[in-house]
């Protein structure tokens, strides 16, 4: 224990100065996080529960039921679940292809390093890259569906969802032991039976967890869709942007704050489930 070390050192220091309790050392950090993370979130929640006159009025939350807001949440859900499913399935296939190769090999090294980079690659640049590939000035094709809502932007989202899936799912596939496969083969199982009764169930929690992470990832994304050619505000982050930039809202609620609370709650629920599933999946990874 650190405290015993402290006590052992005591005599040399005793009486020299009054020492503050050790936790004081953490105060600067807590203060910083308090001001720039906890306080803003508190402001959002506070403002969401108060109307524009500053009176406590939980009925402001009814704004979440407003038709335009409902549509935005539906769009967000549609895009996020679609791109998460797409990314998770393709990412799992790619992760499997990477995992069965030589663990020290060149291909694996390239794909894991590239995944780490591409999972982070979003935002304005990504929208530009697809604009010049399949957009109105596309070099590959000038696809008409590039600007259609779930499909065009969904494909763009897949560009960072697939690598993210590879990163989170690869350790799970690596966790499948060769011995399990051998054991089931010795017992006469076919490849299909192995995946159905052994591999599949073992990977299921990790797969679901990764799916949720991808879902949350797409929910919070803003830059890519904002820089996309189609400038209609579809998803919740874009509606928050509109609410923040145009001060005159029709309802009495602080619209941006209410929307932000809705979004935070959604992401928080999804991420909590993700954490629980990860813990379940980790049981087989050691």
């Amino acid at each position: 224990m650190a405290t015993t070390a402290e006590n052992a050192a005591r005599p040399a220091w005793a009486g020299r100065r009054l020492s503050a309790p050790a936790w004081v050392g953490v105060v600067p950090f807590l203060g910083y996080v308090g001001v720039f993370l906890v306080w803003p979130v508190a402001i959002v929640v506070w403002d969401a529960l108060h109307n524009k006159n500053g009176a406590l009025d939980p009925s402001t939350l009814k704004y979440l039921g407003d038709p335009t807001v409902r549509t935005a949440f539906l769009h967000s859900f549609e895009l996020s679940i679609g791109s998460a499913l797409f990314g998770a399935v393709l990412g799992a296939v790619l992760a499997y292809a990477v995992a069965i190769g030589n663990p020290q090999g060149f291909v694996r090294r390239v794909y894991t390093a590239a995944s780490g980079v591409l999972a982070q690659f979003g935002g304005v640049t990504l929208a530009f890259a697809f604009l010049v590939l399949i957009g109105p000035i596309g070099l590959l094709v000038k696809a008409s569906w590039y600007q259609s809502f779930p499909w065009g932007i969904g494909l763009i989202y897949a560009y960072f969802q697939v690598p993210l899936m590879v990163l989170v799912f690869l350790p799970a596939i690596d966790g499948l032991k060769v011995q399990w496969r051998e054991a089931s083969e010795n017992l006469g199982a076919s490849a299909r039976q192995y995946w159905l009764h052994v591999g599949g169930p073992l990977l299921a929690p990790a797969f679901l967890g990764a799916l949720l992470l991808l879902f949350a990832n797409a929910l919070s994304a803003f830059a890519t869709i904002q820089a996309w050619e189609n400038q209609i505000p579809y998803v919740v982050p874009q509606v928050i942007n509109t609410a923040m930039t145009s001060e005159v809202g029709l309802s009495s609620a602080n619209e941006a704050d209410v929307l932000a609370v809705g979004l935070i709650l959604m992401v928080a629920v999804v991420m909590t489930c993700y954490a629980l599933l990860q813990r379940r999946a980790a049981r087989w990874l050691r």
């Binding site: 993370l37 803003p40 979130v41 959002v44 991420m271």
Partner: peptide, 13 residues
């Protein structure tokens, strides 16, 4: 910060 979308954080900022 991973679970708080930047777009939501910015409202409070």
């Amino acid at each position: 910060p991973l679970t708080i979308p930047a777009i939501a954080l910015v409202v409070g900022l």
